[in-house]
């Protein structure tokens, strides 16, 4: 039986007269020779409904508490733009309370490894889920919820908006920051996350995760001053992740951002 397809990487070192091509398959590892077997092991994991309900209830409770605290305790120091009250308590204002480092709001990011292509132990799956939660959560907070992502959109500042990105991905993301951060929301007084999910498909040959795709859905309620109706901004797409020597990193992205217009009574 023969292997049906091959990829060889020239292994020579670039030299002045041109690279020397070592035998591309030197040291090659024959993983499997049966090309007729294309079936792959795939497991799907739904986010447990009860857990979702509990999470939803907790989120709702938390949001309600924060909203009430905002109403009762006021927010005079921050709300210079004329917006009244604090919507859901999760929004942050354009000017930081202490004029320095703003406190980023808690982001109720829902993550989970929903598809395992290959084999992955439950413990490893949970570890990966925690890693993605931290990685994606930090990016979303810094890129979309930190007021500085709207107030300072310079090249220099933008390089700090992509924590957890590989250097090459960060360089490209800086160029695409209008869509990968809240840079286009300069006039917003308040940006409040109303939906944040990142569900992960991971490929794990021989029990080792080698790459993953996080499907991202982020909805932001964006409020301007002077009583204008808030608008909903949606970010959708994929974040591509891979393990590196520094741990898991985002090495690619494919994201779309859209404004869905004013929020209506029935809009979701």
């Amino acid at each position: 039986m023969t292997t049906q397809a091959e990829v060889a990487r020239p292994s020579g070192v670039a030299a002045k007269a041109g690279r020397r091509y070592g035998v591309g398959l030197r040291g090659a590892r024959r993983v499997r020779q049966d090309a007729d077997v294309h079936a792959v092991t795939e497991r799907r994991y739904d986010v447990p409904r009860t857990r979702r309900r509990v999470a939803t209830a907790l989120s709702a409770g938390l949001v309600l508490m924060m909203a009430l605290s905002g109403c009762f305790w006021g927010d005079s120091g921050r709300d210079s733009g004329g917006a009244s009250g604090r919507d859901a308590g999760a929004g942050i204002e354009n000017s930081a309370a202490d004029g320095g480092q703003p406190v980023l709001p808690a982001l109720a990011l829902r993550t989970g490894v929903t598809r395992v292509i290959g084999e992955l132990e439950p413990a490893a799956r949970k570890r990966l889920a925690r890693t993605v939660d931290a990685l994606v959560g930090r990016y979303l907070k810094v890129a979309f919820l930190d007021p500085r992502s709207r107030s300072d959109t310079s090249d220099e500042a933008a390089t700090s908006r992509f924590p957890g990105f590989t250097p090459g991905a960060r360089a490209q993301a800086v160029a695409d920051r209008r869509l990968l951060t809240a840079a286009s929301l300069r006039d917003a007084d308040r940006v409040t996350p109303v939906l944040a999910t990142a569900y992960v498909s991971v490929v794990a040959p021989q029990g080792k995760p080698v790459g993953a795709t996080a499907r991202l859905a982020l909805d932001l309620r964006v409020s301007a001053d002077e009583g204008n109706r808030p608008v909903r901004v949606r970010v959708r797409g994929r974040l591509l992740l891979t393990p590196t020597s520094q741990g898991w990193r985002i090495f690619g992205y494919d994201l779309a951002q859209s404004g869905a217009g004013p929020e209506g009574r029935r809009s979701r």
């Binding site: 993983v31 077997v37 040959p205």
Partner: peptide
């Protein structure tokens, strides 16, 4: 991910 797993299993690489 399915494509990559298939590649790791069927490619000589």
């Amino acid at each position: 991910e399915r494509g990559v797993l298939s590649a790791t299993r069927n490619l000589y690489t």
